[in-house]
C-alpha cells in the first residue's frame, strides 16, 4: 500500500439510490459543498449500486455532469459496470465528463457477473481510446488552415475476445492525461494486472494480499458511531456509502476529520496521483500524416 498526499486519506462519498437524487436538492447540495470545502470529503462516487449488482437510481455520467458546475470542489467518479455498454460509448461519455468537469473525473470499473478478464479487456480498450486523439493534436493554425495535426491520432486497433474496436475516439484527450481509473475488487482473486488502473476499491471487510501496484481505497457504509467519526480501515483512501442524505447523515459526515483539502486542479492532483497516459505510437495512424 503506498501513501497518498502527505497526511490525507482522500474520501469519496457514494450516495446510493434516493441519496443520489437528493443531490439535486439545493439545501443538500449546499451542505455537501461545505463538506468538500472543509476537506472532509474530496469527491463523489455515483452509481455505486451497480457494484453489488443493483440498479442505479440515475445515470451516473449525466448526474455527474449536472453537478459539475455546482460542486467545483468535487472530484466526480462514475461507475461503469455494464459489459453491454460498448467501450467506444463508455470511453466517449466518460471522457466527455472529464471535459465538462475541467479534468475532475474518474471512472470506477466493475463487472458484476463479468470475469476479471472480461472487465480488464473493457478497461484496456476504454483507456486506449481515451489516449487515441491527443488534445495536443489540435493546433488551430489559421494561416495554413490545419485544425488538427493528425499524425498523433492513432487507431487503438484492438481485437480481443469480446471487443473489436478500431478507433480513434472522437473526443480529444484529457488535461489530466486520462481520467483516474478505479477498479472494484469483489474478492481476493478479483484484482487486475499491475498498472491497469490507478486505484483498487476493496470492500472494507475483504482481505487483499496483492495490490497490483495501485492505491487501495476501502469502501463500506457510513457509520455514525465510528470513534472520532472516521472508519478504522487501513487504506490509502475511503469510499463511504450512504442510502440517504438526511440531516443526521450529513451531521455524521461533518464529524469526519478535516484534511488538507486540494480543491483546485485535476482529480489526479487532488488525489495525489501522477498524470497518466498510454503511449500508442506503435499503433497505426488513423489518417496518415498531416501534409
Amino acid at each position: 500500500m503506498t501513501g497518498s498526499r502527505a497526511g490525507t486519506r482522500p474520501t469519496l462519498l457514494a450516495p446510493r439510490g434516493a441519496a443520489a437524487l437528493a443531490l439535486l436538492d439545493d439545501d443538500v447540495l449546499d451542505r455537501v459543498r461545505a463538506l468538500l470545502v472543509a476537506g472532509r470529503l474530496h469527491g463523489l462516487l455515483l452509481g455505486a449500486e451497480r457494484l453489488d449488482g443493483g440498479v442505479a437510481a440515475s445515470e451516473p455520467t449525466g448526474l455527474a455532469a449536472t453537478l459539475a458546475g455546482r460542486l467545483p470542489e468535487a472530484g466526480l467518479v462514475t461507475v461503469s459496470a455494464d459489459p453491454h455498454d460498448h467501450p467506444y460509448n463508455t470511453a466517449r461519455r466518460t471522457l466527455s465528463l472529464d471535459h465538462v468537469t475541467g479534468a475532475r473525473s474518474g471512472v470506477l470499473f466493475g463487472g458484476h457477473g463479468a470475469t476479471v478478464g472480461e472487465t480488464a479487456e473493457r478497461v484496456l480498450v476504454v483507456r486506449e481510446l481515451w489516449n487515441s486523439y491527443p488534445v495536443q493534436s489540435i493546433v488551430g493554425d489559421r494561416a495554413t488552415g490545419v485544425f488538427a495535426v493528425v499524425d498523433g491520432v492513432r487507431d487503438v486497433a484492438h481485437r480481443g475476445p469480446r471487443y473489436d474496436v478500431a478507433g480513434a475516439l472522437n473526443t480529444p484527450s484529457s488535461r489530466q492525461g486520462e481520467p483516474v481509473s478505479f477498479w472494484s475488487v469483489d474478492g481476493p482473486a478479483g484484482a487486475p494486472d499491475d498498472g491497469l488502473v490507478d486505484v483498487l476499491v476493496v470492500p472494507a471487510t475483504t482481505h487483499l494480499s496483492a495490490t497490483a501496484g495501485a492505491r487501495v481505497y476501502r469502501r463500506g457504509p457510513l457509520d455514525p458511531s465510528w470513534p472520532d467519526g472516521t472508519p478504522p480501515w487501513a487504506a490509502d483512501g475511503l469510499v463511504l456509502e450512504t442510502g440517504d442524505l438526511a440531516p443526521a447523515t450529513l451531521d455524521a459526515l461533518d464529524r469526519l476529520p478535516r484534511q488538507a483539502a486540494t480543491v483546485t486542479g485535476t482529480l489526479r492532483h487532488r488525489l495525489g496521483l501522477p498524470d497518466r497516459s498510454i503511449n500508442l505510437t506503435d499503433r497505426p495512424r488513423t489518417f496518415g500524416a498531416t501534409a
Binding site: T61, G62, L63, A65, T66, A68, G69, Y88, N89, R92, R93, S96, L97, H99, V100, Y133, G145, V146, F147, A148, V149, V150, V153, A168, L169, N170, T171, P172, T286, F287, T290
Partner: peptide
Amino acid sequence: PALTGAIERAPEAGIEPVVLFAS
C-alpha cells in the same frame, strides 16, 4: 460515433451530447 479525416481541417463532434447538455 467516429472521428473522420476532416478533423485535419475543421472540428468535429467532440463532447458527447447527453453529457454536454446535462452540464
